[in-house]
Design a protein around this nucleic acid. Structure first.
Length: 417
RNA sequence: GCGGGUGUAGCUCAGUUGGUUAGAGCGCCAGAUUGUGAUUCUGGAAGUCGCCGGUUCAAUCCCGGUCACUCGCCCCA
């Protein structure tokens, strides 16, 4: 047993979990399609450079969380730790500058070497949405609306808060960052150990600190809003107006920052208090600087990623689509095997979900059918074969009646709940 | 990478202040019921008490290590 375990931080998806995943993805697909987003599937691994370049050499993701290895040809490759870089790469590889705007959605596994805990795994799944090539605020609004629609269709909108911030355009952002560094450097002695490190690597992260001592300092720290230039103010206002126009509630959180370097302007998180300390369910923002950072032409982009595992814990039971209940064809006696096989095949050809009672006496097979949550058991014995009928038992009601084989699928299609 | 908790049957968990054959419920298998499920009754299988080492006449229990899970920090979906 010892080694028959999944690798640490990975999980099998089956049974109820699988049903939840399926439901969430179907809803996601339908909402994304309504916004005219197209599906894109990029490889689950890329050259390590692709992520290093975009995430920044000092980010935690790059320094300690990537699954990186050398393949047999000596290439350094990495299992994707996020979606955006891969999609941006695909955008450039396929020369899509010609066909902007590009609106994509995607879904699949993501890998991060982290210490597992509630709501955090080493292999997990994200759904991703991107609009590339639209520098206007309408794209931000649309992408937020898509997220909001998704959450409400999953039946969890009321438990979730949209937190929103503007990181400013590059000019504002640099000014603010400098102001922060100056401020915190003056108060270095009072900063927590973790925040001292942040001061070196990612000063804006200090605003996010959970340390009580830091909180007092943060209270009096410069506010990002004071450093917005006109471009930033105007852009942010457009986003907020747009959200109000379509009735999406938000809370401005000027402490909301981003770990990744390529974000600017809008940054947002949809959060809940129902998942313990990993409360972010969807997160994203605008990344106009990304493509240039990767060596391509300047191209605007905005998008988000949603954590499937986290959504799966929240999704409302009413929304979950249970698997289709089967009809179980049950041969009675050796001589009815062939006919049963033919009947099952025929029902399937008519689009009915059919399973077979494979072995045991009739009692055994009925028990089996019941356990499979079957709607009908179709019993076929020599008796029935002689008269070209089947005994169809309704397992919910306990009633049964003989049906002509030629009318079997019509009967089932017409009488199933 | 750092800190806390847990590890007994397929699942959820009791239990042993160290002492013969380690228990329950659910589930599973079989029978009551050889052409009729869900209820009921009867019986059965199933455990290297996570793994390695130490202490002891004796360890599932105590000690050390290790692995896994879990909660939190860092960080993030």
């Amino acid at each position: 047993m010892a080694r028959l375990q999944p690798v640490r931080g990975t999980h099998d998806i089956l049974g109820d979990k699988s049903v939840r995943f399926r439901t969430i993805f179907e809803i996601f697909k339908s909402v994304a399609s309504r916004y005219n987003h197209q599906e894109i599937d990029t490889p689950i691994f890329e050259f390590t450079e692709t992520f290093k370049r975009t995430l920044g050499d000092t980010s935690d993701v790059v320094t300690k969380e990537m699954y990186t290895f050398e393949d047999r040809g000596g290439e350094q490759v990495t299992l994707r730790p996020e979606y955006t870089a891969g999609i941006a790469r695909a955008f450039m590889s396929n020369g899509l500058h010609q066909s902007t705007p590009c609106k994509f959605y995607s879904y699949g596994p993501i890998f991060r070497y982290e210490r597992p805990q509630k709501g955090r795994m080493r292999q997990f799944h994200q759904m991703d949405v991107e609009i590339i090539g639209v520098p206007e605020a309408q794209a931000d609004i649309e992408v937020l609306a898509l997220a909001s629609d998704l959450l409400s269709e999953l039946g969890i909108g009321q438990h979730i808060t949209l937190e929103l911030n503007s990181l400013g355009d590059p000019e504002s952002r640099v000014l603010y960052r400098d102001a922060l560094v100056t401020y915190f450097t003056e108060h270095k002695s009072k900063l927590s150990e973790d925040s001292l490190k942040r001061l070196e690597k990612n000063p804006m992260r200090i605003l996010d600190s959970k340390d009580d001592g830091d909180h007092i300092l943060i209270e009096n720290a410069p506010r990002i809003g004071e450093y917005y230039n006109d471009v930033t103010k105007d852009f942010f206002t457009q986003v907020l107006r747009g959200l109000e126009e379509i009735g999406i509630d938000y809370v401005i959180n000027d402490r909301l920052v981003r770990g990744l370097d390529y974000y600017c302007h809008t940054a947002f998180e949809f959060t809940t208090d129902q998942l313990g300390s990993q409360g972010t369910v969807i997160a994203g923002g605008r990344y106009d600087g990304l493509m240039e950072m990767m060596g391509g032409p300047q191209t605007a982009g905005v998008g988000w990623a949603a954590g499937m595992e986290r959504l799966a814990e929240l999704i409302s039971e009413e929304v979950i689509v249970p698997p289709v209940r089967p009809v179980v064809v049950t041969p009675v006696g050796e001589n009815s095997q062939a006919t049963s096989l033919r009947v099952a095949h025929d029902l399937r050809a008519n689009g009915i979900v059919v399973d077979m009672g494979y072995k045991g006496n009739v009692g055994k097979r009925m028990k089996r059918a019941n356990k499979q949550n079957a709607v009908f058991a179709v019993l076929i014995g020599e008796d029935e074969i002689d008269r070209n009928v089947a005994m169809v038992k309704n397992l919910d009601q306990g009633s049964q009646e003989e049906i002509l084989l030629s009318e079997l699928s019509t009967y089932i299609l017409g009488n199933r709940p």
